[in-house]
């Protein structure tokens, strides 16, 4: 029979083993991706070179200088940043209106906003195609950004409302007593208090539009206008795939995600569960 302390120790050991196993499962695929990106073609097909004995940066050089990949990367950056800015402006305005003024049916509006997340993307995509063709917005970034706003905006509004409800609004009152106008009070005081929360929201908007594949693959036809997720398929040929190039493209496209992780490390867990994000 085990003593209570031994039991506790055993449970802790099991927890450690389980967590470390899961960490390996989460990270190992990408370790192998990086290894592959550093291999030559022959090494990739050689079972004795699972861990390469020598490495090459030829794949990265090819992806960066001899393909459209950098262009796709910049296209995606442009689209996601514009989407993010539009969403943040609209949602800060809306959240301020909803929390600081007495709006008839404010709760209902918030629930309706949340409900729109239940709409399957494909159900919206079909009418979008007809609407965008009428507006001549197919193969245009304007159209794509509008569609991206359809899924980032509801989330941004919901999340910003959640953050705004935790802000000490007395700060605004006292700033106004000191002679600030309402907008001055907002930008000089409240904005600074809300900054960490808004930052997390903005970065989630960024992630969501960076991740998007289906709309981009349907609505963008011109090669040089492709986004990174769609452009990745360039390395998948009709009959063969250049795995080395594809895997170096994967590594490069993960860079913004790494930056994102480094930036929101601290606020991640709270930001995730308070606003209910789904990537």
């Amino acid at each position: 029979m085990l003593t209570r302390n031994q039991k506790r120790g055993l449970r802790l050991a099991v927890a450690y083993v389980f967590i470390i196993l899961m960490v390996f499962l989460a990270v190992l695929p990408f370790v192998y991706v990086i290894l592959t990106a550093l291999k030559t073609k022959e090494q990739i097909y050689d079972p004795n070179q699972i861990i390469p004995t020598y490495i090459t940066f030829e794949n990265f050089r090819h992806v960066i200088f001899e393909s459209n990949f950098v262009r796709y990367f910049l296209n995606s950056i442009f689209i996601t940043v514009v989407t993010m800015i539009i969403c943040m402006i609209l949602s800060v305005m809306a959240a301020y209106g909803l929390t600081r003024y007495r709006i008839v049916g404010a709760e209902k509006i918030k629930m309706a906003v949340l409900m729109t997340r239940m709409f399957p993307g494909i159900l919206l995509c079909i009418p979008y195609y007809i609407i965008m063709r009428q507006l001549h917005l197919i193969d245009s970034y304007v159209g794509l950004i509008l569609m991206y706003c359809s899924f980032t905006l509801p989330f941004a509004i919901w999340n910003t409302c959640a953050f705004f409800s935790t802000i000490p609004w007395e700060l605004e009152e006292s700033a106004r007593i000191d002679g600030c106008s309402r907008s001055q009070a907002f930008f000089s005081v409240i904005f600074h208090v809300a900054k960490p929360g808004l930052f997390v929201t903005a970065l989630f908007c960024f992630m969501n539009s960076w991740d998007e594949y289906m709309y981009a693959s349907i609505f963008i036809n011109t090669t040089l206008k492709k986004t990174i997720q769609v452009g990745m398929k360039d390395f998948i040929g009709q009959y063969s795939v250049d795995w080395g190039l594809l895997m170096s493209a994967v590594v490069i496209s993960l860079i913004p995600i790494l930056v994102f992780f480094a930036l929101v490390q601290k606020n991640l867990v709270g930001g995730l569960s308070s606003g209910a994000v789904k990537g």
Binding site: L90, M93, A94, G97, L98, R100, Y101, I109, I157
Partner: peptide
């Protein structure tokens, strides 16, 4: 002003 602020998002 509140209604004006939420109008664009709505």
């Amino acid at each position: 002003p509140g209604y004006l602020l939420i109008a664009p998002a709505v």
